[in-house]
Computed example of a mutant assay.
Amino acid sequence: MRTTSPIVSDISCHVDLHVGPPRNHRAEFHVYSMTRKCPTRQVFVRGGRSHCIDSCSAETMCGEVRVPENHLNPCYVCNSTGHNCRALPRLKTRSFEEDVSTELNDNTLNNDTQVSSFEEEEVEPEGVEDTDFVLYVSAVETERCRRGLTVAYASHCQQESALDRPVAGHANFCPGELSTKYRDLPSVLSTVKHEMLHALGFSVSLFAFYRDDDGEPLTPRRPDTGNPPLDEELQIHKWSDRVVRNVTRKRWMIRGGYIDRTFHMVVTPRVVKEVRDHFNCSELEGAELEDQGGDGTALTHWEKRVFEVSGNENL
Rank of each mutant, 00 (worst) to 15 (best):
R251M: 13
N246M: 13
Y76S: 13
S310R: 06
P269K: 07
F209Y: 14
R86M: 15
E288H: 02
R86I: 09
H194C: 06
D291Q: 10
E195C: 05
P22H: 14
G176V: 04
C174G: 10
S155D: 15
H156W: 14
L189G: 01
R36N: 01
V19R: 04
C145S: 06
T131Q: 07
V244E: 04
N110V: 06
M253N: 03
E28M: 10
R221I: 08
P39I: 11
F44R: 01
R23P: 02
F44L: 02
R305Y: 11
R242F: 05
G293A: 02
V123F: 07
H194P: 03
V188C: 04
H278M: 11
E98K: 14
D99G: 00
C157E: 02
L178Y: 00
Y210K: 10
P269F: 01
N24Q: 07
G148A: 14
D10I: 02
K273H: 08
D16I: 03
F279K: 01
G296F: 00
V15K: 05
R41W: 04
P269L: 01
R245F: 03
D213Y: 11
T219S: 08
R26Y: 09
S282T: 13
D132A: 03
S190T: 09
A199M: 14
T262C: 03
V100K: 12
T225S: 15
H301P: 00
I254H: 11
V271Q: 05
S116W: 13
E303K: 13
D112P: 00
A27G: 01
Q159K: 15
L104V: 06
V140L: 06
D99F: 08
L104Q: 07
N105Y: 12
H194V: 04
D260K: 10
V65D: 05
R251C: 13
R36P: 00
V100A: 03
P6F: 00
P74T: 13
R49T: 05
N84M: 06
E28R: 13
F44C: 05
E303L: 07
T142D: 00
A87S: 12
L234I: 09
G293R: 03
A199G: 03
T108W: 11
T142F: 03
N107K: 14
R276K: 13
P39Y: 12
V272F: 04
R222P: 00
T248P: 03
E98Q: 13
S187I: 02
